[in-house]
Every structure is written in C-alpha cells, then in structure tokens.
C-alpha cells in the first residue's frame, strides 16, 4: 500500500515543491497550509507520516505534534523549521518528533529522511 503523507506548511512554494517531489517518489500526499486545516485532516484520516512546520497560523506545530503523539502514536513526525534554536528543537523531540530538518533544506535529503522514517515504522 502507498504510504500516506501529510505536509503542513504555510509557505505555498515549499508546500507545492514538497508535494511534487514526494508524489514523484511514489507517496500519496495531502497538504495543509495552516495548523487548523492540518489538524482537521489528521482527525479525518490516518497518515504514516506528517511533515510539519513549527510556526503555523492558528495551531502551532508543537501542538500538532503533541496531538499526533497522543492520538496516533504510530504516525511518524518530521519537523521542518527555520529555527535552529536548541530549546525549540529539544521541545519538538521531547514531544515525540522523529526527525528535525532545518530550512533551507536539501529536497533529496528530505526524501531520504522520509523514507528512513517510514522504514523505521515498518520494522
């Protein structure tokens, strides 16, 4: 079965690029441009992986991670953020994020990390 990925990102360019790249890699991709929309998609369906920004309108990335790890503990989470502050990264990992990628990022590296996160979940 094709793994289902949700991308939550408020930068349209990054959102569309990631969607394009991951669809090409053979994943089923859904997108949300703010936290509220992302949260409603998470409530409606199940995802193998969620890629989320931290600074999002309405609901922050940290709140989304917390919700996922409480309600869907099997869903992997990759954080994609401009922040490289240690305490923010630590907060994300403490809430259960599986990986953290800092912007600007390498799209090929992100794809590899997506595959690794999904691989970890499968074993």
């Amino acid at each position: 079965m094709t793994p289902k990925i949700l991308i939550i990102e408020d930068n349209t360019m990054v959102l569309k690029s990631l969607e394009f790249k991951l669809i090409r890699e053979g994943f089923e991709v859904l997108t949300a441009s703010d936290g509220r929309q992302g949260m409603s998609l998470i409530r409606e369906g199940s995802f193998e992986l969620v890629i989320t920004d931290l600074m999002l309108p309405f609901i922050t990335g940290l709140e989304i991670i917390e919700y996922i790890k409480t309600e869907h503990p099997d869903t992997a989470v990759i954080v994609l953020s401009t922040s490289n502050q240690e305490h923010i990264i630590a907060d994300a990992f403490n809430l259960g994020a599986d990986d953290f990628i800092t912007k600007p990022f390498n799209p090929n590296e992100l794809t590899l990390r997506v595959k690794r996160s999904l691989g970890i979940r499968k074993t």
Binding site: M13, V14, P104, N106, P107
Partner: peptide, 14 residues
C-alpha cells in the same frame, strides 16, 4: 523573485 524564494528555502544541488 520566485527563484530567489526557492534559493532561500532550498540548498544542496538545487
């Protein structure tokens, strides 16, 4: 401007 926005968000071979 669009190319610059890409450059600000992507790195590596891109």
């Amino acid at each position: 401007d669009q190319v610059i926005e890409f450059l600000e968000n992507f790195r590596g071979e891109s």
